[in-house]
Amino acid sequence: TPRLPKVFIAGLISQGRLFDKMRSLQTVLVLLVALYASTTTAKFNLEKLRANFFNVTGAKGSLYVQSLKYLQREPPVGNSVNRAGSARYTTETIEQKLDHFDASNTRTWQMRYMENDAYFKEGGPIFIYVGGEWTISPGRITNGHFVDLAKEHNGILFYTEHRYYGQSRPTSDITVENLEYLHVKQALADLAHFIKYQRENYPGLANSKVIMAGGSYSATMVVWFKHLYPELLTGGFASSAPLLAKVDFKEYKEVVGRALRELGSEQCYNRVQNGIATLETMLVDGRAAEVKAMMKICNNFDEENDLDVWTLFSSISNLFSGIVQYQTGNDVPDLCDYLLAQEDDVTAIAKFLLTYVGSGCIDLSYKDTLSYYMDSTYAMGASTYT
């Protein structure tokens, strides 16, 4: 077998190495382009999340207040696929007792609700979406599975507004004395009266079955209503209902962490956990000035005040929780891509927080947050979770 000249062989080897280098360079370029595209997309989608956040919360209150508003808003209605919704609805009110359990208290108020009778035929079922700690809007009775059910069974749709939220205001203000009537048992009694009233006064509903649905707190109300008023409710759909009422509800945040792991990655979860741990260590080690500078925290923040420190970390936690709770599409993976694109753990948390800040500094003092809630008018305070 003839042998190839050594020079020729050396040339092939050299050329092969050149091709290898070119392939390596191409690979690096592809990876860089992919990384840039991923980072750009993540940044774009984070801007989308930021815009949605401020669209829901407005500009009133500290970041902590806004993060709570975002968490405790009306559950969004998902996009309907191959569904024929109905835009037909009316907004009505019904008279309710201020105190259902004190016969000597004759004070009443007007509870707001929405109604869609587009598919109703006499004897058809009553579908009630139960409002929680938010202002009601027509989406829940004009699109979605409840509307599908009403159409299929010739039912009527109602959406009730919870006392003290939205435009359903039982008292002139929200002083501590008046908030005595902001109680779940009173709210459940409102629902009982609502069903009885509709059956007695709405033509064709006298013998109608009743189906309720709710989400989160209002889902819990559905379950408790069935327990307290079983004769009034045929069935219910309770989505994400926290049935065991407790002060330290840590399980909720555990679900948020699990979402970062399962929808993002273990690296994403570790980045958040390690970033938070680093911030805690910096505050303990006397490096609060670095933390405040890095996150543009206002000077009224007192690192020696446990309530201020609690407000800082609660705000960060709530922002992550809001994204997980109301996620659509690739919100969580995009969030993780953004975090993992940063140079280190603590920088990732800082930049994430700064995404939700406009011009100026971040007010994270507990005192300022408390002063916001001390306003007992409906313009601010608890009623602004609407």
Rank of each mutant, 00 (worst) to 15 (best):
M295I: 05
S314V: 02
F320D: 01
A288H: 05
N300M: 06
L283I: 14
Y338H: 08
Y326A: 03
E303A: 15
N274R: 14
G286W: 10
E280W: 03
F301I: 01
M295V: 04
I316W: 03
C298P: 00
E304R: 15
V291R: 04
A288V: 10
Y338E: 01
I276Q: 06
N305P: 04
I297N: 01
T281D: 08
C336N: 07
S315Y: 01
C298Y: 07
I297C: 03
Q325K: 15
L279T: 04
R287I: 01
E303D: 14
A293H: 08
A277N: 11
V272G: 01
R271Q: 11
T278Y: 05
E343K: 14
F313I: 04
R271P: 02
D285L: 12
T281W: 08
K296A: 08
K292Q: 11
A341Y: 07
A293T: 11
C336V: 08
G286A: 09
D306Q: 15
E304N: 15
T281G: 00
N330T: 14
N318S: 10
A288Y: 01
G286D: 06
G286H: 10
V324W: 00
V309C: 03
Q273R: 15
N299G: 00
F313P: 00
E280T: 04
Q273N: 12
N318Q: 09
L279P: 02
T328M: 08
T281M: 11
R287H: 10
D306G: 09
T278R: 14
L279C: 05
L312H: 05
S315P: 00
I316G: 02
S315I: 01
E303H: 15
Q273I: 06
L283C: 09
V291K: 04
A341L: 06
F313G: 02
L335K: 10
D306K: 15
D308C: 06
D337Q: 11
D331T: 09
R271T: 14
L339S: 07
T311I: 00
C298W: 02
D344Y: 11
L307V: 04
D345G: 00
Q325F: 11
V284H: 07
A288W: 02
T278D: 07
